[in-house]
Design a protein around this nucleic acid. Structure first.
Lengths: 339, 339
DNA sequence: TTGAAAGCGCTAACAG
DNA sequence: CTGTTAGCGCTTTCAA
């Protein structure tokens, strides 16, 4: 059964026979290499017409097997559950296709083993490039790929063995913190330190954001309380639990907070609603990430939106130009306030 | 340069030489077919050890070229900008991998031409199956794939030329509408009809939901106003504009509404906030879709969450069992209220 | 201007 | 138990 339908698939030999020419001519025409081979435009047109009529689809496996480069490009991404990674993937796909590259994307759910396995699978499919997005261990991926002659670029989280494009986490956090401190000061009529919630203290982005968070406090001559820096992971539940535990421990929480992602913010808002810790007087919040519904929440929330288009421009700049210096490009995120 | 690194890539012939055996033995061992060939476990272990040492990665393009089936499975998806499609993709990937299938996903942004092109590309990569998710014209995709001997299944939006798995839109909308009507009646102390916002009147899902919407009204002996059914597309701006235009046209809007997706809801909420049409007395809303931030919005919102796990179970049931009846499976979505 | 032919890395039938 | 061999469909010299 299945054999029959597959057996029908036309090859360039079938087309050659129908056109009364050779497979190599068909190949050249269908790849647009026919000026180099100086095939008559008559023959070219005929071949194209026949390919069309026959519903011919090239066999990319055969093509890739024979070729030097596959024109397949892989991307590893941690999650599809937020706007940030969603827009990265969507734009990546479009930009890859614009360049005649075939994108292959794998979601690894922040699991280091899955990341490695995904990279291995991509190598087996002969990808020319791997973009490791938000990878927990980018250098291991780079090394694995390098051993197979596959280049890599890191996105969102930096590595040291290949070029990286990330947000300017320090500067972004600095400015976001300034805005929230400012909002707090206006509301309370005095300077007051904020708390920090969410992210992994071990990852580059979180530690840079904490650095920016501290710097903004120092600028106005106050020092954030180190016990109020809760790098408790990204999951909403973690943020919720941490806040609960902290509130039980120290009583009253600061009136403003820096939240490290929309994912963590989910837990934060839930806790605020459930605990009623703040009563009517909602806290001032700054969120290092953007979501359109957050903008409608009705809390006092400042956001920064990571500049995905610029980041991907930088990624493809590296790819298009074959750059492999292990440098770090930092892209400034964009300020967003509630409407 | 690049040539050098690629030239290094080990093949089964290299491994065979190192192991003092033949390529076919290596192939059999590495594919786990070595019981059928009754290769000594000694040789097998040796081959595996050497493959490991050499960092061998199989060339899937060569393998697929030779094989009958590719074990590659394609999915076409409209957008990555909401939780629903995000979770579909994430789960699809995981389930495909569980089965030893390699998933290839393409985002076509609700563009029919892109959908066809994506299907063509997938055929060229020899996919065994295509899942067309939320496709604007599923049957065209099915026909194109069928001509190449590729099976298809439709997800989220149904087609007539291949099996389809979708939400039970009628029943889901019926129950959602009942809940909102009920909330309205409690608040207003009288029965009052709702309005309907968002979606494409031409697509199956929207028209089924409208049918459910009407049925729920009829149950309690009232008739919804046909002018208040705004199937204005999915984009937030469309919803916002439609509401604005309608409010300008007829003055006061109904106190309750059925919103066809979180994407449309974004525009609805924005309009409610900006126009202040409802003042302090927020309208009762029902949203046919789920987003965790919506659950925190502080409006009176009922939601239904489409049952992605069940839908994908049904999809893989069809695939695993090679079913090709053109039937329609409808999965009941799950009720969600604000916390 | 065109065609013949070799071979990419792998699988599977067949022959030991 | 194991090796030899013939392709899968395509690209790319090379020769005409």
């Amino acid at each position: 059964m299945k054999r029959v339908s597959l057996a029908k698939r036309k090859t360039i030999y079938d087309l050659a026979e129908l056109a009364g020419t050779s497979a190599s001519a068909v190949s050249a025409v269908l790849n647009g290499n026919w000026k180099k081979r100086r095939i008559s435009s008559q023959l070219a047109e005929k071949i194209i017409r026949i390919a069309d009529e026959q519903g011919y689809a090239p066999n990319m496996q055969a093509s890739v097997l024979r070729r030097e480069r596959s024109s397949i490009i892989g991307m590893i991404v941690p999650k599809y559950d937020n706007r940030y990674f969603g827009s990265i993937v969507e734009r990546f796909e479009a930009m890859a296709r614009e360049r005649g590259l075939f994108p292959i994307i794998t979601c690894t759910r922040r699991d280091p083993d899955l990341e490695m396995e995904a990279a291995r699978a991509m190598i087996s499919y002969q990808v020319d490039y791997v973009i490791a997005t938000g990878a927990t261990d980018p250098d291991r991926i780079t090394d694995l790929c390098a051993a197979a002659g596959v280049r890599t670029v890191n996105l969102d989280l930096p590595g040291t063995h290949s070029p990286s494009v990330i947000s300017d986490n320090f500067q972004g956090a600095l400015e976001l913190t300034r805005r929230v401190l400012d909002n707090c000061e206006k509301e309370l009529a005095r300077k007051a330190p904020l708390m920090f919630v969410g992210g992994r203290g071990t990852d580059h982005n979180t530690s840079e954001r904490i650095r920016g968070f501290r710097a903004a406090h120092h600028e106005i001559g106050i020092t954030p309380d180190e016990n109020l820096i809760l790098a408790c992971g990204y999951a909403p539940e973690k943020a919720e639990q941490s806040l609960k535990a902290l509130a039980e421990g120290i009583g009253e929480l600061p009136h403003g907070m820096f939240v490290n992602s929309t994912i963590s913010l989910e837990g934060v808002i839930r806790w605020i609603r459930r605990s009623d810790h703040y009563g009517e007087r909602k806290p001032q919040i700054g969120c290092f990430d953007f979501d359109p519904f957050v903008a409608l929440l009705g809390e006092n929330i400042e956001m920064v939106r990571q500049d995905v288009p610029k980041m991907l421009d930088a990624i493809f700049d590296i790819i298009d130009n074959g750059i492999s210096d292990r440098h770090l490009i930092e892209i400034m995120p964009i300020a967003e306030s509630m409407a």
